[in-house]
């Protein structure tokens, strides 16, 4: 069963002659542990898709089914709880709380969920170690580099053991080297820890880490390709310039 499935997902902004269809009847399913990149020119609806799946925005029509339940039929409190427990968010602008240190930022979703502070912190430090930041647990966000901040954000997204990570241009604000690190970390998240990842990006190099790429244009999915297949890739490589 897919971890998330959208059916005829449509989002229209504005009304009448000003109406803009940001998302037009999108059907998409993401399986557990799958790493999916969503690509397309800006304004193609990829961020809208992510917001709808994350329950941050409500669809005009269609459904988002997460864990077999349609979030359109959930109360706001339920959606909030769902976000807290089943979905992890990673944003372009790291979005860490500036007055909390790295460990506290990571622990935040747990604390919000009512986990005891000490326990939450221990779990947070575990996850910081997994993203390679165990030594920086006590630093405030402004004492961390962009890449490190994004690692903290990823640790925070993972700390509640979510089934799905939603990442909106997670490398959009990083230099290419850090971008690569973050992309590899996300790959590891899907491979090693089995989380499904839905990532919006405009960078082919980052998208190439995914198992599958969904191309969008004008609010529609125009192509949906599986790119992880070792043999085909090798064959292709022979054709493309390396021979």
């Amino acid at each position: 069963m897919p971890i998330v499935e959208t059916k005829g997902l449509t989002r229209v902004y504005g009304e009448g002659s000003n109406a803009v269809t940001a998302l037009d009847a999108v059907d998409l399913a993401v399986e557990p542990g799958e790493f999916v990149a969503v690509m397309g020119p800006s304004g193609c609806g990829k961020s809208t898709l992510l917001n709808l799946i994350g329950g941050l925005d409500a669809p005009t029509s269609g459904s988002v089914v997460i864990d077999g339940r349609d979030i359109a039929h959930m109360s706001e409190a339920e959606v909030t709880a769902l976000r807290r427990r089943r979905i992890g968010f990673v944003f372009q602008f790291f979005n860490l709380i500036p007055v909390l240190d790295a460990a506290e930022n990571v622990a935040l979703p747990l604390v919000l969920d009512g986990v005891k502070a000490a326990e939450a912190k221990a779990t947070a430090i575990e996850w910081l170690a997994r993203v390679g930041l165990q030594d920086l647990a006590g630093r405030k966000p402004d004492e961390l580099s962009g890449g490190q901040q994004q690692r903290v954000a990823i640790a925070r997204a993972l700390v509640t053991d979510p089934a799905l990570i939603l990442a909106d241009e997670p490398t959009g604000n990083l230099d290419s080297r850090s971008s690569d690190d973050i992309a590899r970390l996300l790959k590891e998240v899907s491979v090693t820890w089995g989380r499904a990842i839905l990532m919006v990006t405009h960078d082919p190099r980052i998208a190439a880490h995914a198992d599958r790429i969904v191309f969008m244009r004008d609010g529609r999915v125009v192509d949906d390709t599986r790119i992880a297949g070792a043999q085909e890739a090798r064959d292709a490589m022979e054709k493309v310039g390396l021979l």
Partner: peptide, 19 residues
Amino acid sequence: KTQRTTLYRDLHELTARRA
């Protein structure tokens, strides 16, 4: 479309190898 898929597969392979 085919070519893009092909190139993305290459890219995927290359980035994996590079990793």
